[in-house]
């Protein structure tokens, strides 16, 4: 009897969490996998008998859909350029903040964290003004040094970079805090020992600081990659995917198909493709991490 009790006990403790995870995370994933094999639309939602099983048709169509392929390309573009920028810039900010005095540090911590807690719609309005080709602040500043007006949001390629700048600015706060915490947890003794050995600033940075922060860096990189693969808010509020689909991301495309055109089956298939990509990207990173540790 008591043996049973001990065996069941842990289940009671993790039960609520598992239940919530099941209902709100796993069930939707399996449900959307199911939906991706059907032609569910708004009509099917009201009348289940009008939903048909279509096999892999949605997936086949997806990979012939130029807009979807373009949105995959754009998403990788965002990740490849945006993630290194976001991670390195927040690391640099954290390092600089750890060097300056307490008062300065806390002031700037607040300033850098501000964008993360600001409403994205308010950000969109302000950055819309900044990026305006005709009277925006950026072009005004550039005009002072005789640089022609840049089509910030009017050219498919330039617009991608504009959104990356915006997203890096917005995401720096959170990663910066994680880096700062990691920096502060490095024991001072290491540096003292290094000083005695006569190590210079750079040697200390590369031999002590960076290796000690490897877990924080790993965590920030994984979450940033996942976040950027699901790049959505910035194009949604700034460009709606335009111009000429130049800024459309996979997540935004899924939203457009599913919630603007009510093409639920198709959107579910697209979201599953995104899901697979996120999983693969994460697995790759964990592999790299493991190699790292064995070294």
């Amino acid at each position: 009897m008591t043996k049973w009790k001990y065996k069941l006990m842990p289940l009671f403790f993790i039960g609520p969490a598992v239940l919530l995870l099941m209902v709100f995370s796993f069930a939707p994933i399996f449900l959307s996998l199911g939906i991706s094999f059907t032609d569910l639309t708004l009509i099917g939602l009201a009348d289940w008998s009008k939903v048909n099983f279509v096999g892999f048709e949605n997936f086949v169509k997806l990979f012939q859909d130029e807009v979807f392929l373009e949105s995959i390309f754009n998403t990788f573009f965002y990740v490849i350029i945006g993630v290194p920028l976001a991670v390195s810039s927040s690391l640099v900010i954290a390092l600089l903040l750890s060097m300056v005095g307490k008062w300065l540090s806390s002031t700037f911590r607040l300033i850098y964290y501000m964008p993360s807690v600001t409403n994205i719609v308010a950000i969109a309005v302000v950055w819309g003004f900044l990026y305006n080709q005709q009277y925006g602040l950026f072009n005004y500043i550039l005009s002072l040094v005789n640089i022609q007006s840049v089509p910030w949001l009017e050219d498919p390629l330039v617009a991608k970079f504009s959104l990356i700048i915006l997203a890096v600015w917005k995401s720096n706060g959170v990663s910066m805090l994680i880096f700062l915490a990691a920096l502060q947890s490095i024991p001072r003794d290491y540096y003292e020992a290094a000083d005695i050995d006569g190590a210079n600033r750079w040697q200390k940075f590369f031999k002590i600081t960076l290796p000690s922060m490897s877990f924080a860096t790993f965590f920030v990189t994984v979450t940033t990659v996942i976040g950027w693969l699901q790049f959505f808010e910035e194009p949604f509020v700034m460009t709606d995917g335009g111009p000429l689909n130049g800024t459309n991301s996979m997540a935004l495309y899924i939203y457009q198909r599913g919630f603007e055109y009510n093409d639920f089956g198709y959107a579910a298939a697209a979201s599953f493709v995104l899901f697979i990509i996120v999983i693969i990207a994460t697995i790759i990173q964990f592999r790299f991490r493991k190699k790292d540790q064995t070294l």
Binding site: G128, Q133, Q134, Y135, P151, L153, E154
Partner: peptide, 13 residues
């Protein structure tokens, strides 16, 4: 209207 610049192509004023 866009070709001849009768309506502004960019997000202007």
């Amino acid at each position: 209207f866009y070709e001849e610049g009768l309506s502004q192509l960019e997000e202007g004023k």
